[in-house]
Amino acid sequence: MSDFVARRPIWSLVILVAVALLLWLVFSVWTPGMEAAFGRKRVFLSALFNGITLGALYFLVASGFTLIFGLMRNVNLAHGSLYLFGGYLGYSIGELTGSWLVALLVAFVVVGLVGVLMQVFLFRWMEGQDLRQTLVTIGLSIIFADLLLWSYGGDTFQVTTPDWLSGPVTLPLAVALRSNGEAVLMTYPLVRIAILVGAIVLGVLMWLALNRTRVGMLVRAGVDDRDMLSATGVRVQLVFVMVFAFGAGLAGLAGVVGGTFQSLQPGEDTRILLSSLVVVIVGGMGSIPGAAVGALIVGLAEQFGSVYMPTYAVMLTFVIMVVVLAIRPQGLAARR
């Protein structure tokens, strides 16, 4: 951190000012002039929070994607299908058991197992052949999509929000003042806050696991130089299977989360895949902090876009991707 400040004093200052400005926008009571310029404060705050929670969902999906890519150089284009499969599975389990947490757990485990099968039966046999692996994953995604359409139909499904997560909470943020000077406080759906907190906890745990444990060390070593790691006697294949399982499991988990605060239907698989591709391209292929930064940017861009320029909202994320590719093609948080 201090290293960054020393090397890039101007950028640090810009970031500091931006953060301060944002905090001021969030906590201050807006004057009528500001409301005229930016719209109502509630809209701004809600777009901000929605963008961050959407970013949390994208982070869950993209972190698995980027982990698998970083270690195995395998662009898993069936990742979106794993997301959708997890979501549908979570829906069925949720209907069956009535428990949201069980649904989350089962989706994580089962989709993780599917990931193990994919790695053991397919990708192991075509290691290092990027193009072939990519084509196989495209084929898999088509097969998955048709199987899911066959068993669940084209209808829209929604995972039931558990009672203890439904409804709004009041946040200690004033969005407006009533005529008697009393502040109108912001209300926000509890389930979205829970998802945000969950994603942050998971992100921190992943960072700790990668940087503070022996397994994490193996994974990081694998990302840096796979051949050398294997030469030191580590069973690289086992590490691969584990990472693939974990990445796939995360996609399945994200499917349940996405199915809870959005919804599930055919076509979601490619939409999520596209979002995670943009996220990892913006953030940097193979980097967990990169996935977090990218997910946050893409989520915020989508939400602010849909509020302040609805017609061009779809384009905005791609504009961001193009700009990043133009000025920093390796991604914002990549080391090389």
Binding site: V43, S46, A47, F49, N50, R192, Q262, S306, V307, P310
Partner: peptide, 17 residues
């Protein structure tokens, strides 16, 4: 008048608006 794309998943900002 708020126009949202067909197949919109996230209505959060629309609702706030």
């Amino acid at each position: 008048r708020q126009w949202v794309p067909l197949g919109t998943k996230d209505f959060g900002s629309v609702i706030a608006n």
